[in-house]
């Protein structure tokens, strides 16, 4: 059962224990930054290389995707959502493939992402329509639903957080059990499904829903 728990890697005197997921996140961050530095070395306007075309296709697709959901405001929020998308994709797929426990298996990580999403959702609404409209919109369409719509502030990120956490944990548990019973060959396709397909899908769903909630809030 020790695979399920998030171990504390080391303890710092003041801030306390640093868990495995945070350390893996650091590694992912380092890899991503180094990769971006390497990939964006020779950007050119007129003669893009293959790597640059791939990069532009990816970033362009993500930007178009968020612009399709959010609209004009996507220019402001796009970079954060793309960052989360890349981070989640890396955390869900690359980490397990290289032998790390996926950080998204830790509730702290998904909760942190959900808190960020919650802040972003409410911030985008307030920024677009003003505080007054933001306060008023809880009582729409009828004032009776106000308690429910206020609860929505918490429910939406909670669902994001739990969906991601549950999916990753379940995939991880299934894979560990399978590895325990059938250590040969069989875990490969299952790993492809849970680590790559489900990992990318969950990353996609997370940013997609965040963008969708933002649009709702900005109406």
């Amino acid at each position: 059962m020790e695979e399920l728990s998030c171990e504390t890697v080391f303890s710092l005197p003041v801030v306390g224990g640093i868990s495995e997921s945070v350390v893996v996140t650091w590694i992912i961050m380092a890899v991503l930054v180094v990769a971006s530095l390497l990939l964006t070395r020779n950007l050119s306007v007129e003669n893009p290389g293959k790597v640059q075309l791939m990069l532009e296709a990816g970033i362009g697709w993500a930007q178009d995707f968020f612009e399709g959901i959010i609209g004009k405001e996507a220019k402001r929020y796009g970079p954060y959502l793309i960052t989360v998308l890349i981070y989640l994709a890396a955390a869900n797929t690359l980490a397990p493939l290289f032998g790390f426990k996926p950080p998204t298996k830790d509730l702290n990580v998904t909760a942190a992402l959900a808190v960020m999403s919650m802040c972003l959702i409410e911030f985008s609404g307030i920024r677009k329509n003003g505080v007054k409209h933001w306060v008023k919109h809880f009582a729409e369409p009828v004032p009776v639903v106000a308690p429910i719509t206020v609860l929505e502030i918490v429910i939406r990120p909670l669902s994001l957080c739990m969906r991601l956490f549950g999916n990753m944990l379940a995939g991880f548990v299934v894979l560990e059990l399978l590895k325990f019973f059938v250590p040969l060959i069989v875990p490969i396709p299952v790993s492809f499904y849970f680590d790559i397909f489900d990992g990318l899908l969950q990353a996609y769903v997370f940013v997609f829903l965040t963008a969708l909630f933002m649009t709702e809030e900005m109406e």
């Binding site: 224990g17 640093i18 961050m29 971006s36 702290n108 960020m116």
Partner: peptide, 29 residues
């Protein structure tokens, strides 16, 4: 626990780094 805060900081830092090193240049181009 406190790891939630570290993760938030991590994500913000990652956001700034990626925005500066990956998304910014590519979008600019």
């Amino acid at each position: 626990d406190l790891n939630l805060v570290w993760t938030i900081i991590n994500i913000i830092v990652l956001y700034l780094l990626l925005k500066h090193f990956l998304i910014g240049p590519v979008t600019n181009i």
